[in-house]
């Protein structure tokens, strides 16, 4: 045991200092930059108040990027958690060769995102892509997967779902395997149907896992960058531009650090709201 009060603080100090240097300082500095017209080359900072935020909020491109990000985050997270739940329910029951199939289902998650996006870009090529060849073979018309502004974002949702559904699947499978068997056995003895068991026992007990999967996928999809960068570059006609891509361009292509920081601050606030919503759901006392 510690002999005095300062020892725990001393032992924690290096880790806290590192955290402050690597996380808190950049965040705090981003907040400062967001209210300035930072001149990167000369290091000059001019305070401009809310001007960066005003410009962004009135900018059609920023509005479009925000709308794309929200649509992508909600749709991809919900679809991935929904599909993950179905797969988890399937794999929670023993069936032959289950141990062989499991690695196959989680394999996309092990691929590098850039590799994954490059593969799908080839598959989605209008003339030579495997997907359109498949559509041809079954008598469906070829689709402009990445070049139609109305379809491009959903094509990226498809790619992200292919790669990251396994993550939701693994979280929910762990949750299902943690449900005590005696509860389900008692329900069976009481004559509960499989649907009733799912709705009244498994789903309520899975709730923290579902929220966790949703939170992790929401935070990840909210940051969407690399897939868009490879697949569409934010186009066509800004239909797939996301906040992360916009912040990257402002920050590292144009070195407009004020605008890039303002976008980062807005993203941070949205991510914080998402996290607090999750914390509130998980921590609230059962009624």
């Amino acid at each position: 045991m510690f002999r005095s009060g300062w020892q725990p603080a001393l032992l924690l100090a290096p880790a806290l200092l590192l955290l402050a240097l690597l996380t808190l300082y950049p965040i705090a500095y981003s907040f400062v930059l967001a209210f300035t017209d930072a001149e990167y080359q000369s290091d000059a900072l001019t305070f401009v108040g809310w001007a960066n935020f005003n410009t962004l909020l009135n900018d059609w491109f920023f509005q479009q990027a925000t709308w794309n990000t929200v649509r992508f985050t909600v749709s991809a997270s919900v679809v991935q958690v929904g599909l993950g739940l179905l797969l988890a329910l399937l794999f929670a029951r023993p069936f032959p060769r289950r141990q062989w199939l499991l690695p196959l289902f989680i394999y996309p998650m092990m691929l590098s995102t850039l590799v994954c996006a490059s593969i799908w870009k080839a598959w989605m090529h209008f003339d030579f892509g495997w997907l359109n060849n498949l559509f041809d073979a079954v008598g469906l018309s070829r689709q402009p997967w990445l070049s139609d502004p109305a379809l491009a974002l959903w094509s990226i949702v498809l790619v992200d779902t292919w790669q990251w559904t396994p993550m939701a699947f693994l979280i929910l499978l762990a949750g299902l395997q943690g449900i005590p068997q005696d509860i389900e056995e008692a329900a069976t003895l009481e004559g509960a149907t499989p649907w009733q068991q799912f709705w009244h026992i498994r789903l309520p007990l899975l709730r923290p896992y579902l929220f966790l999967a949703l939170l992790l996928r929401s935070i990840d999809t909210f940051k969407l960058f690399d897939k868009v960068y490879v697949l569409t570059g934010g186009g066509p006609a800004f239909a797939t531009e996301t906040l992360s891509l916009m912040a990257y361009k402002q920050g590292f292509k144009f070195f407009n650090l004020g605008a890039a920081s303002a976008i980062a601050v807005i993203m941070l606030v949205i991510a914080l709201v998402l996290s607090l919503a999750y914390a509130w759901q998980v921590m609230r006392r059962p009624t």
């Binding site: 003339d127 030579f128 402009p144 990445l146 070049s147 186009g235």
Partner: peptide
């Protein structure tokens, strides 16, 4: 132009001209 020209980059242009497309 080919369908999907909005996301064509150097690789697609080279392939189109070299593959008689």
């Amino acid at each position: 132009a080919p369908r999907g020209i909005e996301v064509y980059n150097s690789g697609e242009v080279r392939d189109a001209i070299q593959q008689n497309k």
